[in-house]
Amino acid sequence: MEGTIRAAAERIRAAGAGPARPGRDPVNLPMIRNWLEAIGDRNPRYEQDGVAPPAMTQVWTMRGLHPVVEPADPLSAMSAVLDQAGFTSVVATNCEQTYHRYLRDGERVEVRSRLVDVRGPKRTALGEGWFVTTDSTWYVGAEAVASMTFRVLKFRPPGSTATAPASERAPAAASERVPAVVSERASGVAFERAAAAVASDALRPVVTRDTAFFWAGTAAGELRIQRCGGCGELRHPPGPVCRQCGADRQDHLVARGTGEIFSFVVHRHPPVPGRRLPIVVALVELTEGVRMVGEVLGADPRQVRIGATVQVDFVRVDTELTLPAWRLLP
């Protein structure tokens, strides 16, 4: 059976791109407005410039309510082969779209797809299956305007056997019948590495009973300053015992989040894990009177001055760490 699937995959792959399939309608504002309204996108640019949201690209060539079966379409052809072999269910795992330019009102779009590869059989959380990857390119005339790599898992639903008839027809691309977390990460690996490069590289504070309130605060979007439960003295960095009155009942207040730059550094060398240099790091005197160190976000180093007013912002590194940072106020 594996041999049959591989042979079919090779045949379909070797056939190259299927026929060009034109969209039903040209790019048009009514459909764009419907899309913006449904998605909740208030970006005024599309109406103003008469262009379509890039994520709508595939919409223009969707097959609609009554799709015609197209045996020449590579994904349809491959799906039919896998259905025959009992891998009747499908779940999409990856969709990577690249937009060469935005589509303009009135342009006519067509799409061509080809089979890139079929890998399997793989054991997944859903059951045994095959990953089918296709590439699609959208054209306006001869100009390629967007492309997409799309991957689905065609799998055998648990409980069925290899020879059981297909319990349901595989749907066309861009839909899923049995949604679930898929164990194979496929191209998602690239994303995970990128995110991990930031999160796992991050320098983390040592959090103790004395300091946990501060970090819980940043995670909740609050800049907390320790306040002595005895005399009300404010203190940062915090500690377990009040220096003024000796009380060890510590409380905190939520800072207004504003302050002035007391001093700052433009760090250019050497590298700092998780950051792209240069960065500006400032010691800020908060309105409440204590000082605190944080990165100044989005600032041109030449614009930063001692005495400049800043507002706190929070940088969420991951679920365990949120850093306080500053933004310059105009």
Partner: peptide, 14 residues
């Protein structure tokens, strides 16, 4: 280590 937590994670670490 706790002291360093008030500036290292913020990028001030040399």
């Amino acid at each position: 280590g706790v002291d360093n937590g008030w500036h290292y994670p913020m990028g001030l670490g040399t």
